[in-house]
Design a protein around this nucleic acid. Structure first.
Lengths: 226, 226
DNA sequence: GCAGAAGTGGAGAGAATTTCTCCACTACCT
DNA sequence: AGGTAGTGGAGAAATTCTCTCCACTTCTGC
């Protein structure tokens, strides 16, 4: 498991650059081929030798962790931007969710879960996303824009589901825009409309706090390719 | 590629039974571990020897095809039941989608796409699902229960997305019910509400007819594990 | 019941894939 | 310009998966 933060270390400029190239390539390859994708392929796509990859990331888990932390960083920035530029809290939520789709958050999650230890560093990165999103949601509900029974999990899990790539061949029919279309339908379902005209939500309502249960859990046996 | 329908052939009763055990096990294992899961594991879970599996299904694609056809059969029955028992067309659509989630349709699709040739047999099985679903949708729209811009793809792809399993570790937080909860939110988004109060849907609108484009396409290169 | 046909299991050889090290070479930094 | 940090890629070793072979078991028709 990589040191706390070897990303900010004292490295030669080209090494620093290569490190980021590897992370970017890893994200793409992991999304395409799953968390067990050959590391050679990642190195090739990054344009570096396999040795460079192994020097920087002693094992696969270290690389996965770096990708996860990097992605959380992007997401946190997306949340901040959404909060700042949204015309109201509903619009902010909408901006965040569409942005999260673009960041492919949901394609990264499957790696995170089960492969990365939820220690303090990961937890902090996670909350840097979760806290502003929860704040947006709470505000939107206070303004009567979002149905009051909606919870954090109803945002997070749908982003995950929508941003996971569909099977390759369906690309004949589908591009990334389809997920955005369906997200808008979902968002309309989240609106605070007449309670008589909407379905009553069944459990489980998963709150932001519930995610704390993942702390410390790690490599709990079966880790599907997925 | 297996013969047209070796499912109904003249087989000894126990062989017939084993064949179905293999298909059932394959569905479970494929869902858990992806379409490239070791065949040994499938045989083990089915409680048969690896030789039996190979005798019945000469290669992986034959097995995948059998699973796909079997699943379409279940789905078609679900659609028929929904149409028959729904209190109105919205309710029928709702029943179908929840039922399709339970059948894990979306976990099977990733195999179908890119691994199974869309020949006449597959096409017929596919339409045995698609046609009644389209009919339900059209009826619901005629009755003013579903927004008029919604199309077949808005039903099918969301079922796929919702029924794909989330990463193993999130099972600490999540059970299958969560997908049903989110489906209900989505269904509320599909309702025909005041157009001023809903988001305008962007393209692409994927119709049932668009799926014909998949005919004949097969093994188009990159087939992600997924 | 019995004979014979149909079906079965699992070990293991072979093929394919993946990991990860080593070291001669190159590029940065002061 | 010198020295240190960084690099690439071949290939040995380990791992994983496929798929056949054949002695044995179970069905089915009579």
């Amino acid at each position: 498991m990589g040191g706390t933060t070897d990303g900010g270390g004292r490295m030669r400029a080209d090494a620093q650059r290569n490190r980021q190239l590897i992370i970017d390539a890893a994200r793409d390859i992991f999304i395409e081929a799953g968390a067990d994708a050959p590391l050679d392929e990642i190195a090739r796509q990054a344009g570096v030798g396999i040795a460079t990859l192994y020097r920087r990331f002693p094992d696969r888990d270290a690389l996965i962790r770096a990708v996860v932390l990097d992605t959380f960083g992007v997401m946190a920035e997306t949340a901040r931007n959404a909060e700042e530029h949204g015309t109201d809290a509903f619009d902010a939520l909408r901006r965040f969710m569409h942005g999260a789709l673009d960041a492919k958050m949901g394609a990264i999650m499957p790696m995170l879960a089960g492969r990365v230890e939820f220690d303090d560093e990961v937890d902090q990165a996670r909350l840097a996303v979760g806290v502003p999103v929860q704040r947006i949601l709470t505000t939107a509900q206070a303004q009567g824009l979002i149905r009051p029974e909606a919870v954090f999990g109803d945002i997070a899990f749908m982003v995950v589901r929508l941003s996971r790539p569909l099977p390759a061949i369906t690309k004949i029919l589908v591009d990334d825009d389809l997920a955005h279309r369906h997200l808008d339908i979902y968002l309309d379902g989240l609106r605070a409309s007449d309670p008589a005209e909407r379905l009553e939500l069944r459990p489980p309502a998963v709150s932001l706090a519930d995610f704390d249960k993942l702390r410390g859990k790690f490599a709990n046996g079966a880790v599907p390719t997925d």
